[in-house]
Design a protein around this nucleic acid. Structure first.
Lengths: 258, 258
DNA sequence: TTAGAACTGAAAGATTCTGATCGGATGGTA
DNA sequence: TACCATCCGATCAGAATCTTTCAGTTCTAA
């Protein structure tokens, strides 16, 4: 990571949380505390943040609050029932990507959490999630590609009614998607719009990777998206029903525990 | 690969991601780091990018860190020299649209201000401005269509390198665009990227409506976008040079004062 | 075709950055 | 106050990056 990028991330993190400790920053940016201290000193010289014992503080009172409101909504979902699990699953998902690799990410709350980890990596992302694209555009420097189409606010996605699409020029090894439920019968989704969006992108990727926290395992949603055989990898957490997982393995699904 | 091509690619990559490391660029362009460094130096001389340790940074966005927040920067510009004028011009632009009408809006700061008024109306909007789309999606309930493509952070636009595009299915009476300068010789723009984006969308609209505050009237930018004859309506403010306006009228441009 | 200019990749040396370490400073607690 | 844990700044070796130089290649114009 470039020094400038690190500086930007530090300021972002400080702005977002109002305060950030040296320890936290060094863990977050995967660098030594010495470097963080040096960075904080430089940013302090530039008046980009306040230096306080133990870390750094946001320099602006006004805009700080505004920005917090913005990002608060994005991370509000983090603290849901299965927030932590989802977050770890998202982390695991990003970790299996290779540097520089182009990936496809479908809209949804689970996949949205990949954003936090994607911005630390150098991956090229195609996503129909307007929210994810916006998050990465603001916080990261990944290359981002959006399909064309209309914005569906409720789903937070961009979807075109036409076959011709920017997507067709994109190719990737991995496509990531969330799900409402997965059983040995297949992957299900709750919203037909999401299904259409998913199917468009799925053609362009070789591996289909499904992310589902344990509450989704063995559950069935309203609409069937695809049979279990077509899933290459399932990422879930350690509370998933082992019986269902075994059935999925029998259908050729590789199961990863986050 | 020709040097010129390489330079273009480097600038593109830097624009898209805001940063690019020497290492990454040399891998991406399949050339030695020595060459990349030389290229970066040349492009730096030409002010096409900023040189930073480890790589290069996008030049468009000066003070960087603060402005990164896509939505925060939006109203900052409101308070610029011509902020009020721009705002009134944007208001006028929206006012000439008919309810329910589909319109095309090109990226840029002036056109962005249309957002504030668009959300109060019932118009269907096609825009390549990621910022504008985000603003309307958050604050309004208009139907929004985005072209597919990659996100260019500094311009805040989505642009595809391919001809095939969602845009081609869209048709509209009116296309709105800002400009860096307009004279009887034509409409000019500062950023070649914006030109590419503009020309794609222009084909889909019947009327071309240019928005330019008085400081832009009679001024010339770096790149010529189109001759004055192709402009149907010009919206400007009451301080515009009347002599230039008359010349434009003689070229068939209808001039509206906001 | 040839001479000269421009470009490229590689290597050497200078510069800057990073991570680790250590003594001293700071804040909290009894 | 005395003690402890933690944090900070200074320092140094090693790593990464930058500039310069040089030799080989490609391009250009006569």
């Amino acid at each position: 990571m470039l020094e400038k990028q690190r500086h930007q991330l530090i300021v972002d993190l400080v702005e977002k949380a109002r305060f950030a400790s040296v320890n936290h920053l060094s863990a977050e940016l995967n660098t030594s505390e010495a470097t963080i201290r040096r960075d904080i000193n430089k940013l302090y010289e530039l008046n980009k943040l306040k230096k306080i014992r133990g870390g750094a503080e946001s320099v602006s009172n006004d805009s700080g609050i505004k920005q917090r409101a913005l990002s608060a909504s994005t991370f509000a979902s983090n603290h849901g029932m299965h927030g932590d699990k989802k977050r770890r699953i998202a982390e695991k998902a990003v970790s299996i990507c290779n540097d520089g690799e182009p990936i496809i990410v479908n809209g949804g709350t689970t996949t949205f959490m990949m954003g936090e980890f994607l911005i630390k990596r150098n991956l090229s992302v195609l996503t129909n999630s307007f929210k994810l694209a916006h998050y990465i555009a603001e916080h990261g420097d990944n290359q981002i590609t959006l399909p064309g189409g209309e914005i569906y606010r409720d789903q937070g996605i961009v979807l075109s009614s036409f076959e011709q699409d920017t997507i067709q020029y994109y190719h990737s090894n991995k496509m990531f998607m969330g799900t409402q439920g997965i059983t040995e019968l297949g992957v299900t989704e709750s919203d037909p719009l999401l299904i259409r969006a998913e199917q468009k992108m799925r053609k362009q990727a070789e591996q289909l990777i499904v992310m589902a926290d344990s509450s989704k395992i063995g559950r069935r949603g309203n609409f069937i998206l695809c049979p279990a055989e077509q899933v290459d990898i399932l990422i879930t957490d350690d509370e998933a029903d082992e019986k269902v997982l075994q059935e999925l393995r029998d259908h050729g699904v590789e199961v990863l525990i986050a």
